[in-house]
Design a protein around this nucleic acid. Structure first.
Lengths: 221, 221
DNA sequence: TTTCAGCTCCCTATAAATGGGGATAAGCCT
DNA sequence: AGGCTTATCCCCATTTATAGGGAGCTGAAA
């Protein structure tokens, strides 16, 4: 009898893990070797137990460490692990960043049920797998030459924002205008406007509303 | 033999529905009578088939119509339906708004698996049910006298915004400027600017950033 | 029927934000 | 010492947003 494919599942929603287990249990070639509810559990699972699954199914949004940081941790420590991202996000930038971090598959939660088994089998033998909607947006991104990979995506841009830019950004979210920000931070108005320009460029947004939306989405406020 | 409790599940993630079904199937008193993947499917299911489940499990984030709007539709049409909210959100404002819209239970996806069966049974016989984390934040909101109900914080301000104002607000959060909004909605620029003025006045914010922050905090986006 | 809220559009005017450009000084890393 | 980043400030021009006013139309409610 052939050894079954060992799968580890990481998602902060237990009910979703139970769903995945229920689906996977219908297949005889795959079995769940364990699960994690946070990103930290995932990296601990690797670091302490030196355990490895044939396939890791990984959510992006998780407490303590998110999916990005889990993959970065793997890369930093030279851990080779087949990873399938299972996420609600179908944003091209996120997919591309995950690919650059070395994930082997990406499926959305919308149509996970139909494809998760074949995704696991594909990735387990070293192939790539993307659900149909992800395939579509990847194809579009090639055809429309938007976001040519490589140059700074948008997710962990927080790291590259300087302290001063963060000061300005926070005050922007408090609905301060440039003169008010200048006054609050004891700066010239021109300086504040320069910071704004740099923020717009770095975060690739159109206007102050974009800055505010970025700030809330990335928990800067 | 007693009739089983009929449950309808609405969530845009099919895999999660499958998880719920798997969990519920372990109980002999409950059965799934159907499911919906969008809010629109839920209201259609009521309007067309005049069907009613003993319990409706309802996600908040869904395409076409979200959970708020589904409950509003029920209220407007006098439909009495036991509803359990199943959501990732544990924000006190959201819980309170859902309660004011008449939901009978609220459980988070984090610990749904353990409690979903008892939640269904409680709500089916007319009781309320909240998962432990929701109980905690509800208790805190009483003890800490935050959100004193009654005087317009910004809780039901959403209702006083007109449809058109909401259209404009949503596009503002997408970083559209007034000409772009005008073009998208087939309006004059002046009209868009009027809506902006009214939004600023109604929501008591200073600028577009304030509008965007309001929109995210109140889950309009 | 009148009234009113909502939606539409316009005018004028000022304030602010955006998008280029450039410049200086301090500090850090190599 | 040279290169880099950051922070600070200024110039320009243009576009957008804010703020006040008014005004016509529609459909629903009183």
């Amino acid at each position: 009898m052939k050894k079954k494919i060992q799968v580890h599942v990481a998602d902060d929603h237990k009910i979703l893990i139970e769903g995945i287990i229920a689906v996977i249990n219908t297949d005889n070639d795959i079995e769940i070797s364990g699960y994690s509810l946070t990103g930290k559990e995932v990296v601990d699972w690797f670091d302490e137990k030196k355990n490895k699954a044939d396939v890791l199914i990984l959510d992006i949004t998780m407490p303590l460490l998110d999916g990005f940081e889990v993959l970065k941790h793997f890369n930093k420590n030279g851990i080779k692990q087949n990873v399938i991202i299972l996420s609600s996000y179908d944003d091209i930038k996120i997919v591309q960043e995950m690919l650059s971090l070395g994930c082997k598959g990406y499926i959305t939660k919308n149509n996970a049920g139909e494809h998760i088994v074949e995704a696991i089998k594909a990735v387990a033998i070293g192939e790539q797998y993307f659900s149909s909607d992800i395939q579509n947006i990847l194809l579009k991104s090639f055809a429309g030459q938007q976001v040519p990979v490589g140059d700074a995506p948008n997710k962990f841009m927080t790291d590259t924002l300087t302290d001063r830019e963060l000061d300005v950004l926070k005050l922007i979210t408090k609905q301060f205008n440039s003169p008010e920000i200048a006054n609050t931070l004891c700066l010239g108005i021109s300086t504040v406007e320069t910071h704004r320009k740099n923020l717009l460029r770095k975060l690739k947004v159109k206007n102050s509303v974009g800055l505010a939306m970025y700030a809330v989405k990335n928990n800067i406020v």
